[in-house]
Design a protein around this nucleic acid. Structure first.
Lengths: 229, 229
DNA sequence: TGTACATCAGTGAACGCGCGTTCACTGATGTAC
DNA sequence: TGTACATCAGTGAACGCGCGTTCACTGATGTAC
């Protein structure tokens, strides 16, 4: 921590390839985040040293520190989306796919704890509007799967957005507590995450059914959720 | 923000009443947290100025900044517990009491956003063991209510701890996202929090019932949850 | 009741530090002729 | 193919700042006689 990992001095990039170093800087910032364990501990100087460059170089690629951190967050959101997509590849049942996507989200958060914390707890006063979050691959993927679940009769048809937000709240809740309070008696993290996610999805459906408590409807829904029995 | 609010110079406390200033320092730190909007922005200097005292005075009451922040967190947890207790006073139905306690938690988090964030996102490497969280009035209150729900046949009898943790995860998830991403299309915060909390509770029960899908059981449970019909 | 004295809550000045950011610069890279 | 030159990615040194913390101190508060 105290001894900065100064990489070998890098060769100057050719003309058009400014984006190359930009990517390396983001990657270095994410690694610093992981290594130093806190968003405050990540300094321009540390990131620069990690890339093997002097601090002023950073400013050729980012206007200031905030812009760098924004880029780091965007980079991480892209990775979350990819992790979700890959976790649910080749799974036919949409509810099972939703489950795997939720688990992938929690898994990713735990594996990238500091970065996830930065991304989710940072209140960006401006410049971050709803679309920047909702347009993410992660959000689009979940939304798509929720719609598939609606088409399969598992969720009531309608706007998927409220349900997606509630499911995210559940996933985020267990992910961030597992990260921040690892010493609590959670048991197997994978298992408790699965419980929370399942309860959120099931609870959403049943809360609707309770309004019209016809046992037939519940039995029919059950058959759809648990085709095996 | 830039102009520090220097209070009138305080009179020296009488001999035995060191705890008085200690309390004032904690309160000032919480107010700084609220005013400055970020845990990093709260400095010993700002807190001291807010109390009307010079920075070195703080060290008569706290060994260092971390100890002060720990005290702030403990103070806030005590307040959350009290808010929950008061929110459920005089409510007979244990499930409704649980609901009001959850809502009180979310409400408190939103009203004390920065402090709540500090308390829940801070990873204390040591010194914070499970008992410090689980021994809180907030946790004891929720646990007690969950046990009452078990006695009333609403939840399956057993160790309340796993369920309490899952419910907390749900409450924390929606609370922290409402705080960090207020620009997302949540709709009425109170309503979405209610949905998430209810889904978590209902989902937990129904996930158990699904293992043994006897419509009679579900109908009986429904009657217990919804005595009116 | 009056005086000398011990206590210790709060002070004032200063320390060393790492931070974000700036500036004029250097010299390898690519291009025009 | 060879040379002069423009470009601009990265440099080195420095800035001003606010931070946590320390130290020897001051002087009101309470006590002993």
């Amino acid at each position: 921590v105290s001894a900065e990992p100064i990489a070998a001095r890098r060769r100057r990039s050719p003309r058009g390839s400014g984006d190359l170093l930009r990517g390396e800087i983001i990657a270095a910032a994410r690694e610093c985040l992981t290594r130093l364990g806190s968003a405050d501990a990540v300094s321009i100087r540390a990131v620069a040293a990690h890339v093997g460059v002097t601090p002023p170089s950073i400013y050729r690629h980012f206007a200031d520190k905030d812009e760098l951190l924004d880029a780091v967050v965007a980079d991480m959101f892209a990775d979350i989306g990819e992790a979700m997509r890959r976790a649910s590849e080749g799974i036919a049942n949409p509810l099972e796919r939703l489950r795997q996507q939720g688990l992938a989200c929690v898994r990713f958060a735990r594996a990238n704890a500091e970065c996830y914390r930065l991304a989710t707890m940072n209140v960006r006063t401006e410049a971050s509007h709803a679309d920047e979050v909702l347009g993410t691959e992660a959000f689009m993927t979940i939304s798509g799967t929720v719609v598939e679940c609606m088409d399969a009769g598992i969720f009531q048809k309608g706007d998927p957005l409220p349900l997606v937000l509630e499911l995210w709240a559940a996933a985020h809740g267990i992910a961030s507590l597992l990260i921040a309070k690892p010493y609590l008696p959670w048991g197997d993290p994978e298992l408790v995450a699965d419980h929370v996610l399942r309860a959120a999805a099931i609870g959403h459906v049943v809360a609707d059914l309770i309004g019209d408590p016809d046992p037939e409807k519940f039995a029919a829904w059950l058959a759809r959720v648990h085709p095996a029995g």
